[in-house]
Design a protein around this nucleic acid. Sequence first.
DNA 1: GCCTAAGATGTTATCGGTAACAAAAACTGT
DNA 2: ACAGTTTTTGTTACCGATAACATCTTAGGC
Lengths: 337, 337
Amino acid sequence: MSGARVTMRDVARAVGMSPMTVSRALRSDSSVSLETRTRIRAAADRLGYVYDGTAAAFRTRKSGFVALTLPSLNNANFAETYRGLSEAMAGSGMQLLLGATNYQVEKEEELVRQLLARNPEALVLTGGHHTAAMRDLVAARNLPLVEMWDLPEAPLGHAVGVSTEAAMALVVAHLVETGRRRFAFLGASEGTDRRGAARRAAVEAAARSHGLPQVAFIDAGPAPVSMRQGAARVAEIGREIADHDALICVSDPVAFGALSACARLGLDVPGDLAITGFGQFEVAEVAVPQITTVAVEAHRIGEEVAGLLDALLAGEAAPRRIEIAPRLVPGATSAQA
Amino acid sequence: MSGARVTMRDVARAVGMSPMTVSRALRSDSSVSLETRTRIRAAADRLGYVYDGTAAAFRTRKSGFVALTLPSLNNANFAETYRGLSEAMAGSGMQLLLGATNYQVEKEEELVRQLLARNPEALVLTGGHHTAAMRDLVAARNLPLVEMWDLPEAPLGHAVGVSTEAAMALVVAHLVETGRRRFAFLGASEGTDRRGAARRAAVEAAARSHGLPQVAFIDAGPAPVSMRQGAARVAEIGREIADHDALICVSDPVAFGALSACARLGLDVPGDLAITGFGQFEVAEVAVPQITTVAVEAHRIGEEVAGLLDALLAGEAAPRRIEIAPRLVPGATSAQA
DNA sequence: GCCTAAGATGTTATCGGTAACAAAAACTGT
DNA sequence: ACAGTTTTTGTTACCGATAACATCTTAGGC
């Protein structure tokens, strides 16, 4: 049952070979004969041997960890990026060490501290905004570093992400084409969501370049904002929301909330008001009417990050910024006015 | 920058003491005199010493990890449980090591192997169904083990979860009260989703006990099934779906998909058909009409698991099973017929 | 046959902390 | 002042895997 743990030595004894050979065999290494290898594998299974990564990490001074921060797990896009990353890294022997920041930069700093204590071989951060202390922390380590989703002009290390400007320009252009000009942006309170703020700024810039009037800002409360907040805020405003003719929402869940509230208010979408979201969440496609959104290849972001890491860990050169092109997915919530 | 790395031995030499004393001083062991401790701390700083957690983990065989498997991150309930767990464990110095199984038991086994390689001090699994090899694997380790969400009669270790029977009985009773009798269950294909299959079985049992006719099964395809699959399947069936008078969906996202499809088909919910979901996802509350669902305190499951782990890691006794009571949240999709 | 190259396996010595036990130094009360 | 405690420091022996180097086979060339 319990007893002493099974080590390579035990496996070695069982097959009458040296622990070194067992080590080589289990790491699927070249120089062990096929027969020996299968014999060792079988013995290991039989004895219930489990590889001790801690010991290996200690000896080789390689933790096998890639540390990763995400704002939240409960977000289809981040979850999908995680999947892409984890699938693409499956063969590499690296393990992901995940932490959630709940959208707070201070939390991120603390989290990164904890993650660094595990001696990760690389660090992947979501977002391009960090505390100064955090930047020092990672600079001192001199680790391969990738920021994702955002696409800073000057990344701390490398970056894989979407140009917010490009993405929001698509939305604004589309709304202009379908005849809208009085825009409002629905997102989280000032200062609580950098990514959202960047989207808003990009919308404003695009609106200016189209010669549109000032874009109104509707505050849905502190981040994270989702369906509930979107719905509540629009419900609170009531039918006056239709003084605008397009409501650009910071994300699809928020857009869905707004859409629901409109339905309850008896407003016609897109007749009285166009609504757009961001992120191509499932709810945008399934909602009635289908919500206009921007698709970002979340899974591919993960894959590209994995590719970068692969190169960086192998000491190869790698592109500093990888831009993932956003794509407009026109839905029925912004059909021709 | 860096030459040879600075170890405790170097620090010890610098202050003329033994490495053991340095070790104690840096861990703020009370048995080191204050003066010695400050002297050692100063020397460590001066020399640029960095504590090697890997070495400590290796020697003490305490990794400070709690390993955790989740079927998917992209699920509000699991994400919330993760949050509950991680928040409740924040002070304990333990770190969560997460892996996603994508709802496959074979994947779970492989994943658990990887996680065990990190010498976690406890293991938390989502679900109560595992491969035999996995059960052996964890039995051999003799680790504190908690299964969550499901509530097996005989847990491998401990369990925190919801009684599926109780939950689905609430739904069935509610539908009977509001005048429905011709039930259909919409969920993933046979054999691809244990948790879903259990819900279906529970619905059938409850229906029998109410003397209702056989519950029809509508196959939404292999797990995981979500909004898209629910919508597609109902769209495919068309208006005949209303031959039933209640559609019990395996989850809220599926229910929302079904609801959308009904809207597109011009069916009146709840007039032509009642719809229920499971899990109190945000979409259930925000959808129009609001979807009847079953609330499970996902965050609390995480907290309770953390409490259990706390006790188990301290070597204290702990309850074998903790049952979280489900609660019906009646929405408009099942209003009185 | 003999010799060399390539292939397969073995030996030794750690990596950097810390548990367990041992001992010296500093107190305590009588 | 001395035995008994308590506090502080030291010694020894690992934890389990693997890098580096050494050794033994086997195959093939001449």
